[in-house]
């Protein structure tokens, strides 16, 4: 399989020479097409900074980030917006749906800003909604839906453009366990059936146990890597817990 995302020695520094914070301290890794990759770490470990750099919302101080073979660290602001809407899909912790639009319109929005023909918009929106199991709430406004439904609408919006890479920032953070499980099963389904590539940042071991591979970050550095391989979800979960206890600190993250 080819690498969708390649990160080479990515560094992100804040502050000045006298007071330097290394949020990312030389991180390198690859994500292959069709992978469901997790990034874990305690608060302040740099995982959100990493996600922001990959998602082109933030710029790295040095190093290279290649998405689909294109170096996003060398792109101009205008090209970045185009790149974001064509190659990336975003899922945020707080859903970030437009409250004035219905579910259908929220999903379709990702396509309308790409100037997609309207017939195709309808077909692809319905299709994405079916995959995420939200076909029956398409006419509703966000405030009429449950948190789980909202997050699945947001996920549908992220995948409807068929991006090379879906970036999910704590997608289960605001969900109850039942909704979280449902969402994660949909993610698995997307990866298996649609060959989608998902990079998910989380500090929840349960959510992480759905991934194929997990990177652990501490103090801006790659600390450990876990590959699920043939293990069951339960076995994988136990191994994640072991690593977290090694990472130390965030006792609250252990379920």
């Amino acid at each position: 399989m080819s690498a969708i995302l390649q990160a080479h020695h990515v560094e992100k520094y804040y502050g000045n020479r006298n007071n330097l914070t290394k949020a990312l301290d030389g991180i390198s890794f690859d994500v292959d097409a069709g992978e469901f990759m997790g990034v874990m770490g305690a608060s302040g470990s740099g995982k959100t900074t990493l996600l922001n750099c990959i998602s082109t919302i933030d710029t790295a101080t040095s190093g290279q980030i290649l998405i689909g073979g294109v170096d996003v660290t060398a792109m101009h602001a205008k090209a970045l917006a185009k790149f974001r809407r064509e190659e990336l899909g975003f899922i945020f912790q707080d859903f970030n749906l437009l409250d004035t639009l219905t579910a259908y319109e929220n999903i379709a929005l990702a396509l309308t800003i790409l100037d997609t023909p309207h017939r195709e918009i309808d077909r692809r929106t319905q299709d994405a909604a079916r995959i995420l199991g939200i076909s029956d709430v398409l006419k509703k406004y966000p405030y009429q839906m449950s948190g789980g439904q909202r997050q699945r609408v947001a996920s549908a919006r992220a995948i409807v453009t068929e991006p090379s890479l879906v970036l999910a920032d704590e997608p289960t953070g605001a969900l109850d366990s039942k909704s979280a499980r449902m969402l994660l099963e949909r993610f698995e389904h997307l990866v298996e059936q649609r060959n989608a590539t998902i990079l998910m940042v989380t500090h929840d071991a349960f959510s992480a146990s759905y991934c194929n591979r997990i990177l652990f970050i501490r103090d801006g550095k790659l600390f450990h890597e876990l590959v699920r391989g043939g293990a069951s979800r339960k076995q994988f979960f136990d191994r994640i817990i072991e690593v977290i206890s090694l990472l130390g600190g965030d006792a609250n993250d252990i379920i």
């Binding site: 004035t100 319109e105 379709a108 929005l109 309207h118 309808d122």
Partner: peptide, 19 residues
Amino acid sequence: NKRVYLKGLNMFVLRQINS
């Protein structure tokens, strides 16, 4: 008229005003 409604941010603007 889906052709107009589903074009660019038209949908967003209309909903914005309607809300």
